[in-house]
Nucleic acid binder design. Sequence first.
DNA 1: CCTGAAAGCTACGCCTGTTAGCCAAAAGTG
DNA 2: CACTTTTGGCTAACAGGCGTAGCTTTCAGG
Lengths: 198, 198
Amino acid sequence: MPRAGLSREAVVRLALEVVDDGGAAGFAGLTLAQVAGRAGVATPSLYKHVGSLAELRREVSLQATTELTAAGSRATVGRSGPDAVRALAHAWRGYALQHPGRYAATQVAPDPDDPAEAAHRQVAAQGVEVAAAALRAFDLPDDRLVDAVRAARSAVHGFVALELGGGFRLPQGVDASFDVLLDMLVAGITALSVHETP
Amino acid sequence: MPRAGLSREAVVRLALEVVDDGGAAGFAGLTLAQVAGRAGVATPSLYKHVGSLAELRREVSLQATTELTAAGSRATVGRSGPDAVRALAHAWRGYALQHPGRYAATQVAPDPDDPAEAAHRQVAAQGVEVAAAALRAFDLPDDRLVDAVRAARSAVHGFVALELGGGFRLPQGVDASFDVLLDMLVAGITALSVHETP
DNA sequence: CCTGAAAGCTACGCCTGTTAGCCAAAAGTG
DNA sequence: CACTTTTGGCTAACAGGCGTAGCTTTCAGG
């Protein structure tokens, strides 16, 4: 009986394939049996490379969050102000539409206390950092910056979540609605900065 | 052996208890075994009242959606314009914070084709109707109204989803951030109506 | 070449949901 | 009141999930 030549990285890669193939429910439907099936291996064999299903899910989540952060960072380099906000939002939505399963994995917040999730917390913080940097040109004070980042994340995540969940019945005009939402967001952030000048 | 005196309604009620006790993950963690445990009954006995776990979940989802729609409707009677938008948003968030499990149940969109989910589709449509009515005073044309409703749902749902999921690390200022988000939303919808006057 | 670690495997336990079939309790009927 | 039918429980069993224990085989290093 020859070996399959698995490794921790290979198992995570196969898990990502399973998540990708499962659509928006791919992350919730991730199962060790499916990963083992793709690897051509019996399920318990995976435990030689991964501690548990929960750990594998954390690994997938970390990978997806890293990708999402990178996409946001890539989209905003060389941009500032409203341009940066729109580019960031489109990058987020684009990632979510292209990788619905991975995007769902992105939305599990890491446990603030678990030391095993330190890396996860760090990359999540980097993502917020990217958003904050995109808003730098608005010159907001710290507490308003927090409000603005939260508003941006809420607007985009809410839209994408509803879109992926089938919450928008009329398929037409979804892109246009997103642009309208971004208009509101940009105008709102701009107003925030204006009101701050004494 | 005495009977437990169950009924379909009683099973759904117990399922709602399980969902409530499970926090934000209560809906995902709903299990027939837990419901049976609360009813003091063996798991297979539930099948005399409910066709499957999926059907029970649909029932819970229908109930929760009905409640959320009612809360929105109650909050907006006698209000219009920005006042109505804010009241609706606060009603949505209030329901989500008070009943995180049921709110999660609210977010599963009914299958557009399944005839068994006709009631679910109807009450979901009523919820959108309530939102559209709250925006009536802005006098938006139809396509802009769709954009505005989507923006409102996206902003509030996104905020609540991140809040419940632990996405906001700093516990302070969350209420204030929500109010800032609503300021942006109201201003954005107002701007939509202004731009429409030729 | 030999030894030991690593990577597979099977078997098992416990948890889900679900179906089948049995039996007693309740409800309807002459 | 007695009898029959329906109904709401039960146990047994199966499939499929995660996870553990222990065995065997492969591979790498001395």
